[in-house]
C-alpha cells in the first residue's frame, strides 16, 4: 500500500449568506467545490507535485492532508492512518501529527515575529515531548540549524534579522524538528529570489535523501516542479485533469489545460534564440 493515499477526496465550501438573509433575499445556498473527487498516491521517499493556477484547490488539498481541514467526502491515509477516521485514538493522532509537517509559502508570515529562532525550533520538540532535558533540546536545535545550513550563533536571533531564504531554512528546520515522514511544501520557493530558490530546492533534495522524506510539493512554477517531482498532478478547478511523470508531461501533455500551462511558462531555450 502506498505511503500517502488520497481517495475520492472532495471538499465543498459553503459561501452562502446567513440563513435569515438568504430567506429574505430568496437566494439558494452558494457552494464552492474546491476539490472534486481527487485520487492520487505517493510512495515512500518520493515527491509528488500538484500544479495548477491559484484557486485550483492545491492548498485545500494540502490543508486536508495536514489534517487541518476536514474533507467533505473521500479520505486520506498516511501510513495507513486517517486523521478524520471516527475511531482514531489520541496517541495515533498525535504520532500522525508528528509525522506530517508543512513548509509554507511566505517566509515572513510563517515565523512568529516575537519568538527567537531557538524557541521556534524548540516548540515542536516540546509539543511532542521528544527530548526532556533542557540541554538535549538545545543540542537538537543546534543540530537542526546545521542541517539546514545555518549556524549555532543564530539561536538567539529574531526572525526579522534574517533574509527570506534564511527564514525559509528556519521553517524547514522547524518542520524537521519532529522527525516527520511526510513534508507538505506549499509553494516553498515562490516568495524567494531565483538564486535563493535553487539553494532551497537543493537543500530540500538533500534532506529528502538523508531522512528518506516523502514530499507533497505544491507549486505553480513548472520549472521548479520539473526538478523536484517524481510524479506531477495537474489540477484545474478542483479536478485532477492529468497525472504523469515529469518527462511525459513536458514532452507529451495530453490535456488542453496542461498544454496551456506549459505554453504560459517562460522557456529558456526559446529566449536564447532571440538575436
Amino acid at each position: 500500500m502506498s505511503f500517502l493515499l488520497v481517495n475520492q477526496l472532495s471538499r465543498i465550501f459553503d459561501l452562502s449568506e446567513p440563513w435569515i438573509l438568504r430567506k429574505i433575499k430568496g437566494q439558494q445556498k452558494k457552494l464552492l467545490k474546491a476539490v472534486d473527487k481527487v485520487n492520487f498516491s505517493i510512495e515512500r521517499g518520493q515527491t509528488y507535485a500538484l500544479v495548477g493556477e491559484s484557486g485550483s484547490g492545491k492548498s485545500t488539498i494540502a490543508m486536508m492532508v495536514a489534517g487541518l481541514i476536514k474533507p467533505s467526502s473521500g479520505f486520506i491515509t498516511i501510513d495507513g492512518y486517517n486523521f478524520f477516521s471516527p475511531t482514531i485514538e489520541n496517541n495515533i493522532k498525535s504520532s500522525l501529527r508528528k509525522s506530517v509537517q508543512m513548509i509554507f509559502q511566505s517566509p515572513y508570515a510563517s515565523l512568529n515575529p516575537r519568538w527567537r529562532v531557538g524557541d521556534v525550533l524548540k516548540e515542536p520538540i516540546k509539543a511532542f515531548n521528544l527530548i526532556e532535558s533542557e540541554n538535549g533540546q538545545k543540542r537538537r536545535v543546534c543540530e537542526l540549524l546545521e542541517q539546514v545550513g545555518l549556524s549555532e550563533r543564530d539561536i538567539n536571533k529574531f526572525p526579522h534579522e534574517f533574509s527570506g531564504g534564511q527564514r525559509q531554512r528556519i521553517c524547514i528546520a522547524r518542520s524537521l524538528a519532529s522527525e516527520p515522514k511526510l513534508i507538505i511544501c506549499d509553494e516553498p520557493t515562490s516568495a524567494l529570489d531565483v538564486s535563493v530558490q535553487a539553494q532551497v530546492l537543493n537543500l530540500l533534495k538533500d534532506l529528502q535523501k538523508q531522512f528518506s522524506l516523502t514530499y507533497l510539493f505544491i507549486s505553480h512554477d513548472l520549472a521548479v516542479v520539473s526538478t523536484m517531482a517524481n510524479r506531477i498532478g495537474v489540477l484545474k478547478q478542483g479536478i485532477l485533469v492529468e497525472e504523469a511523470s515529469p518527462n511525459k508531461l513536458f514532452e507529451k501533455p495530453e490535456h488542453d489545460y496542461t498544454k496551456m500551462l506549459l505554453t504560459a511558462a517562460p522557456d529558456i531555450k526559446n529566449v536564447s534564440k532571440i538575436p
Binding site: R97, Q105, S110, N112, R114, E123, A127
Partner: peptide, 25 residues
C-alpha cells in the same frame, strides 16, 4: 498567518495558541 497554522499542526490547544502565539502579536 502561517505561524499559527504551523502551531495548529503541532496539535497545540486553542488556549495555548491564543496565549503564546497570538496575544504577544
Amino acid at each position: 498567518k502561517e505561524y499559527v497554522i504551523s502551531a495548529r499542526m503541532l496539535g497545540l490547544s486553542y488556549p495555548q495558541i491564543m496565549v503564546r502565539h497570538i496575544l504577544p502579536n
